[in-house]
């Protein structure tokens, strides 16, 4: 298997290497990918949306459909992990087939069971040792957390003018929560940011994004065509309405990404019972 795999991989690699010779040179400004649509983005982005960061403008306005569905994918991934792993009091919500589990246990494992007790005790002792709170780590996290969250908010809110946006800010927020969960224990963190709240936030994020689109529909434009929202925002013209709507949409993305990554961590690290994390 390994040799067949290696040979086929080498074969594919060599074919690709030969094919790549026909590609445009690296950094060629007139390659096909850089010629048609991207020039429009670069030349007209500021007149059309008043957002100097082209990546944000393309992400949240020109390709807003794509981004909305990517956000939904993140949300659905969170829900899928919930469905696969989450268990309450040891019983899985997904109702896995116990039959397979019983059949899957081999005889060898049953024989191994005798030497188990001592090993279990040692494991438990090591776990107790590891679960002790570490003063240095906890103090550092206490000091770092506000900075991390403030920076995340800056990244979300300033995504129009500097590198950043909802995805990046949401990931930073989630990283902050995961840091707390690792240093203070998952249960303590879940007492602060409960599972229900994060699920609701994830929902809310997608709702904000899709709701902005529906609002545009109700006002008589196409789905996610933001310029009509100038009627709602105070003192904005149609172009600034696009800029502001992008911020709204990015906030929605930030909510979803933060809560879903946090939930994914919580479920994966505690094996679905949300009791004891890493």
């Amino acid at each position: 298997m390994k040799t067949i795999g290696l040979l086929s991989v080498l074969f594919t690699g060599i074919l690709l290497m030969i094919a790549v010779v026909d590609f445009p040179d690296w950094g060629d400004p007139h390659s096909p990918a850089n010629s048609y649509l991207s020039t429009h983005y670069i030349e007209d982005v500021e007149e059309e949306t008043a957002v100097p960061n082209m990546v944000t403008a393309v992400l949240a306005d020109y390709r807003a459909f794509d981004t909305m569905l990517e956000t939904s994918v993140v949300f659905v991934a969170g829900i899928a992990i919930f469905a696969i792993l989450r268990s309450i009091d040891g019983t899985s919500l997904a109702g896995t087939t116990r039959r397979l589990q019983r059949r899957g246990r081999s005889k060898k494992e049953k024989r191994k069971g005798q030497g188990r007790n001592r090993r279990d005790e040692m494991v438990a002792a090591a776990e107790r040792e590891a679960a002790k709170p570490d003063l240095i780590v906890q103090t550092t996290v206490r000091l770092l957390m506000p900075t991390i969250q403030l920076f995340a908010l800056y990244v979300i809110a300033h995504g129009h003018h500097s590198p950043g946006g909802g995805f990046q800010g949401g990931v930073i927020l989630a990283a902050g929560l995961i840091l707390v969960a690792m240093s203070f224990g998952l249960e303590n963190t879940l007492a602060q940011v409960p599972e229900k709240l994060s699920l609701q936030l994830g929902n809310l994020g997608v709702l904000i994004f899709a709701g902005t689109g529906v609002l545009c529909l109700l006002l008589g434009a196409n789905f996610l065509d933001y310029h009509v929202l100038a009627a709602i925002y105070p003192a904005t013209d149609e172009i600034m309405a696009r800029s502001h709507s992008m911020l709204v949409v990015e906030i929605g993305v930030g909510f979803t990404v933060m809560s879903m990554l946090y939930l994914i961590y919580a479920n994966l690290s505690s094996h679905g019972d949300l009791k004891k994390g890493l």
Partner: peptide, 23 residues
Amino acid sequence: PLPHVLMLTAIVVGVATLGVAMA
């Protein structure tokens, strides 16, 4: 800017789907 946009979303979605795979 277009490839950056595509990959920006792909990175986050990649992390989320990797989470599903781990589950």
